[in-house]
């Protein structure tokens, strides 16, 4: 008789104290492994819409960095066939013009990047081209920030950023695309 009661008592008392720890372990595991998807992208400001034809400005050719992307995703930069990989370097050289060459921009403030594509250009190519141009400006601004303030551009105060932005403004003009190679 005594033996039976002992067995009953043992089987009825399972220690549940560690359950909470197991649950916490699971919670922590999922907290650590979960990545909340973040939305990122290239931020641009579109020009305001006006009904009238924009007045054509006469620009000196040396100040214009024209980038044409055609419907078969080929690049023509200032009349030369180029690839996306060398675009950033060329843009930087054009804007900065370290050797004060006659055929490159007079000053970073006067440099204008003109981007034109076909309606048949793939979005992927457009974004990679835009990304390279943005990268060129970002790197130039970073270099300017390092030179003036000894800090990365993103660590500057808003006044200091304004100074850098005034020195190297990003002037990117996008022309209406030509209706070519539209997918149907």
């Amino acid at each position: 008789m005594a033996k039976t009661s002992l067995r009953d008592r043992i089987s009825n008392e399972i220690n549940a104290g560690s359950m909470a720890d197991i649950a916490f372990l699971l919670l922590i595991f999922f907290l650590v492994t979960t990545t909340i998807e973040e939305d990122e992208g290239i931020l641009v400001r579109l020009p305001p819409w006006s009904e009238e034809e924009p007045e054509t400005q006469k620009l000196r050719e040396r100040n214009v960095f024209s980038v044409l992307v055609n419907a078969s995703n080929q690049l023509l930069v200032r009349g030369e066939v180029t690839n996306v990989a060398s675009l950033k370097q060329r843009a930087k050289e054009f804007i900065r013009n370290p050797q004060a060459r006659e055929d490159l921009a007079e000053s970073p403030g006067k440099a204008i990047v003109s981007l034109k594509n076909d309606r048949g250009t793939s979005y992927e190519t457009y974004i990679s081209v835009y990304n390279e141009l943005q990268a060129a400006y970002n790197e130039l601004r970073n270099e300017e920030a390092m030179r003036r303030f000894g800090k990365q551009y993103e660590n500057l105060s808003s006044d200091q950023r304004q100074v850098v932005r005034n020195t190297i403004p990003m002037i990117l003009s996008e022309a209406e695309p030509t209706a070519f190679g539209e997918e149907n």
């Binding site: 990122e40 309606r119 992927e124 695309p177």
Partner: peptide
């Protein structure tokens, strides 16, 4: 990424007409 710029351009033009200038190309 495979979409051609035609429809993107139309959307951009419409955004400009509506006065929505801040645009983020998600990537």
């Amino acid at each position: 990424g495979k979409v051609t710029m035609g429809i993107v351009q139309d959307v951009k033009t419409e955004l400009r007409k509506s006065g929505q200038q801040k645009v983020n190309y998600s990537a």
